[in-house]
Design a protein around this nucleic acid. Structure first.
Length: 153
DNA sequence: GCCAACGTTGGC
DNA sequence: GCCAACGTTGGC
């Protein structure tokens, strides 16, 4: 089993929105970065664990945990001209963008803030704490996952 | 709202 | 294939 961190803007879709969805499950779509796409398409597997990270908001940090319930499949929004994620250069024969489905697992009692994550001596390799890292989907090592989870709950 | 750091685009 | 211009991300 692998561990991941997915970024989202809670003003648009946050951990509470995920928890409120029917079956507490939601397709994680709209990812339009090739490196992140490759993770979604090739490496994110069913039952992998995911930190839900809130960005561009008042309380920046990890809000809770979700689980992957469906592995990479074509992101439907790329085919929808009405969608902000529409990509005219993509086709159903050769989809360019992928998504996975995630299910809510838990919300932390409090946001594990970016500031506190950066202050943790064990967290050195996570993309989040590296300068200029903007990936919206990133891997988390098992040891870093444990450290972060222990700190959060 | 600012702005640094990146990614993408497109002319050549 | 280079690289300048442009757009986006995301913390502050």
């Amino acid at each position: 089993m692998a561990y991941w961190l997915f970024k989202t803007e809670p003003d648009t879709f946050g951990i509470d929105d995920l928890a409120a969805r029917s079956n507490q499950t939601e397709p994680w779509d709209g990812v339009r970065n090739y490196q992140a796409r490759n993770f979604l398409r090739d490496q994110v597997k069913a039952d992998d664990k995911v930190f839900i990270y809130h960005s561009s908001c008042k309380q920046v940090g990890i809000a809770g945990v979700a689980r992957v319930v469906r592995e990479g499949y074509p992101d439907e929004t790329q085919f929808d001209p009405e969608s902000p994620y529409f990509d005219p250069k993509s086709s159903r024969e050769q989809p360019r963008w992928y998504r996975v489905d995630v299910k809510f697992e838990q919300k932390f009692p409090a946001i594990l803030s970016l500031q506190s994550i950066k202050a943790m001596p064990q967290i050195t390799e996570l993309g989040l704490v590296k300068k200029g890292h903007r990936l919206s989907i990133m891997p988390v090592s098992e040891s870093e996952w444990q450290v972060l989870l222990n700190k959060a709950v």
